[in-house]
Design a protein around this nucleic acid. Sequence first.
DNA 1: TGAAATGTTGGGGCG
DNA 2: ACGCCCCAACATTTC
Length: 490
Amino acid sequence: MKQGSTCREGGWGEEGRRTVVVWMRRGLRVQDLTPLWTAVKEGASVVPVVCLRDDAPTRKQTLRREFMREALIDCDASLRSLGSRLFVRSGTPEAEIPAAVQAHRADAVYAVRVYDPAGIARDGRIAEAVNAIGAAFVTFKDTVLFEGNEIRSGSGAPYRVFTPYMNAWLGYRDEVPPVLPLLRNIPSPEVRGGDLALSRFPGMKGVRRGRGETMARHRLRAFLDDGLRRYGERRDFPGEEGTSRLSPYLAVGALSIRTVLKAVRKGRQRATGPARAGIDCYLKELLWREFYYQVLHNFPHVAGGAFREELNDVSWSRNRRHFAAWCQGRTGYPIVDAAMRQLQQEGWMHNRARMIVASFLTKDLHINWQWGERYFLDHLIDADIALNNGGWQWTAGTGTDASPWFRIFNPVLQGEKFDPDGLYVRRYVPELARVPARAVHRPWVLTGAEQRDAGCVLRKDYPGPIVNHNEERKVTLALYRNPGPRRHPR
DNA sequence: TGAAATGTTGGGGCG
DNA sequence: ACGCCCCAACATTTC
């Protein structure tokens, strides 16, 4: 379970017990958090640390930062109820984790393990600095049930295709790590130099009490009671509340994947027939999560480009006007625009919609999927490098188990299929609220009089389609077939 | 977790 | 009554 640098001999602090800095990175919770639980179980005096920056958030990251800070408030409150607290450090982890070790004369740093190359490199630098002052840097498996090196094919190779991976994974189903026992008390030292109280941190002004571990547990409970058994039939309709909405909590570590799996399995035992099928559908999504972590772990080059490296040569469009229209939800394709506006307003987007907008960016606008990947990372409150990358490469057709690159979504048909009444589109694109259902995903078919009746005059109240899907589809086929240099018109 | 193009079939209108 | 055509509905192939 542990993996890390040198362990220090006999490092007992002045009160005769070890002191461990628990870096709460990707672990904004108190229960079922491996590094925290381990430190407490070992009898250490625990210093739960978060490193925050007090610069003004960029506009694009506002929602994400707000979500994280709500989770911090909840986390701090939970820690306080168990005799501890958050020790907030102002600055970068590279500077502040070693500084916290120094201030508390800690013997070790415990943290949740990460798998992205940049995060691994950063951990390496921090480990070096921490080792240099005589403490250990130890990371723990926590974000996934099984790591990339734990499930291998018969030949020992990592899996590149989802279905065989899933089958192999199911062979280990009895070995999933259990939910950790409840912590009832977390011994912690007094604050030292550089430690801030969360409430005193400048960036916390005005942050409401709201989402965090407590809310995550409520959501999980609500999903188990209501949504889970119908997940299979409802999950594809972005206008409905058919999904768990747990992803933001998993992303910041306000909820543990072990807790989710245990709860879902319990629900599955009681279910029969279609309900069980619906639950299995959800379990499969959790396995996609495991799969993409496994891919990033074993094939780290995906973080910087296509898994299928020959597809790094595709010459993408750099049309800024198109990209801006996509970002702002002004492409003239209602389902795309609704989805992108949902992202801007809520910092979250339904997964079906994510696939549609990703297909549109790559296959209709011919823009590099990495532009979309970056945009999603900046705007999603559930931003997760492994899953975001896996999803984008799946749609772009550059990844493992990728859809063939010629699998292109038609935004009109997708809209009509998965948002038949236009509920989703009308909610996020109010210009289209009064457009009749038959045209809500293709408003350009309305006559001038019908447009005026619906209060949606094309190119005045709502943009005309910025590209012609049918034409751009053909361009994409040519582009992927022959990845060489190419000029994009307009 | 696609969609378009192409092929096949069968029913009904119609000369 | 029959063959022909049209086309919807469905299946298969192709990108």
